[in-house]
Write a protein that binds this DNA or RNA. Structure first.
Lengths: 227, 227
DNA sequence: AGGAATTTGTGCGTATGTATC
DNA sequence: AGATACATACGCACAAATTCC
């Protein structure tokens, strides 16, 4: 039996995910809400504290508690946050190619297979191309089905392979835009460009993915949020 | 006037930093501690919750509260992880200058004062210069004492001003090595260079710090670890 | 091994302060 | 200025985990 304040917090999370609670919606006053949940204000506040720390609820003293449904959290962004310089932007991703190939020499060692799935994508914020990326998913997890590959890559891994990504390490480096970058990407092939190298680990503890993301700094920044 | 629970939390942080509270040490029982601090158990618990969320204290039901001094957290690394390409490196920082100045035009808006403390540092890993950085700490927190400024900047803030940094946002950008970079930095003044922009917030919720860190990519990478 | 004592975790109620509308 | 709503603070009772005898 979980503590009541966690039960309440989880119920609220489910209500947000299910769409019963919409983004920006104002919750009832704490006393009212506590009464309807048959609990005390203190316990309700502890539950809300959880959601505030997750960024799902914003509390404004004297005003109220507001739902902050963050679609990004469960989508393309989840483990890789790119923002427009103004801090907003609806994310999407266009898959340029999916291939099952021998890992080329020069690719860092990761995973256990000599083969890998290579995904190349163009990423957009508000329909503006902001980054291109090349992702290598280790071959031993299986062969990626390009047709069912959507915006939320890690969710697709979970769907196709029951593969859950648990953590990752990102590093920043400076390089050049790859030759396969599409024409409508702001920068031209060969331009100097900052990129992110990423290694990602499965919940089983194996490093299963390596990726590089080159992004147009005029359009977007890579953001690390702490705590 | 800060809330009592934050005052208590900060006093405990100072006591840990000062060495009055050693790693692994067991704190007195909550009721006892609350009495000696002339507060209620609930308020003390809220203060301890802060420290637990920072990893400074571990609470074990039925046993007690234990100090978890994490030297790495309070060192140069804290909230800003630079590694050598091999993943190792003992961090250190040399303070080049500390000045209390009018914020120049062009500096992003943050904090509430027109003045700011400008710190310029050279950062090393294993005594190799890997990055230079310029840090602006808002003037309204006070005037930094250069003499007591060590490697652990955020710990120094806590010491000098009871100022605890709670979270930060980092963004990657590309620019040029500043003119004041020392000779022994690998890159030369004006060289193209990746840098990190950082905004950092106090626990009171005010954005109190802005910094730029230019780093020599041949020597070091900036690393984001997730989860 | 087992039970009592100790210590933190959870839940509730209330009073007062402070920000917002 | 008044009403509303969240923030802080205090205190108590009982549950759960640990420690000690």
């Amino acid at each position: 039996m979980q503590p009541k304040y966690l039960q309440i917090a989880q119920q609220l999370v489910r209500d947000i995910a299910a769409g019963y609670l919409m983004d920006g919606q104002k919750l009832p006053p704490e006393r009212e809400m506590a009464a309807s949940l048959q609990t005390s204000v203190g316990t309700l506040r502890k539950a809300l504290d959880q959601l505030v720390s997750q960024g799902r609820v914003e509390r404004i003293q004297g005003s109220g508690n507001y739902i902050r449904a963050d679609l990004e959290r469960d989508s393309v962004y989840s483990l890789f946050r790119i923002e427009r310089r103004n801090g907003r932007g609806k994310p999407s991703a266009e898959v340029l190619s999916v291939d099952y190939l021998d890992k080329p020499t020069g690719l860092p060692t990761f995973g256990s297979s000599a083969m890998g799935n290579r995904v190349r994508r163009l990423r957009r914020l508000d329909d503006v191309a902001v980054a291109v990326e090349e992702i290598w998913l280790d071959g031993n997890v299986g062969k990626l089905d390009a047709n069912t590959l959507g915006n939320a890559l890690y969710a697709d891994y979970a769907q196709q392979f029951s593969l859950m990504i648990s953590h990752a390490v990102d590093a920043v480096a400076i390089g050049h835009v790859p030759s396969w970058a599409p024409e409508n990407f702001g920068l031209l092939s060969g331009d100097a460009c900052g990129y992110i190298e990423r290694f990602a680990w499965s919940e089983a503890g194996e490093c299963v993915e390596f990726s590089k993301t080159w992004f147009d700094q005029n359009q977007a920044i890579y953001v690390q949020r702490l705590r």
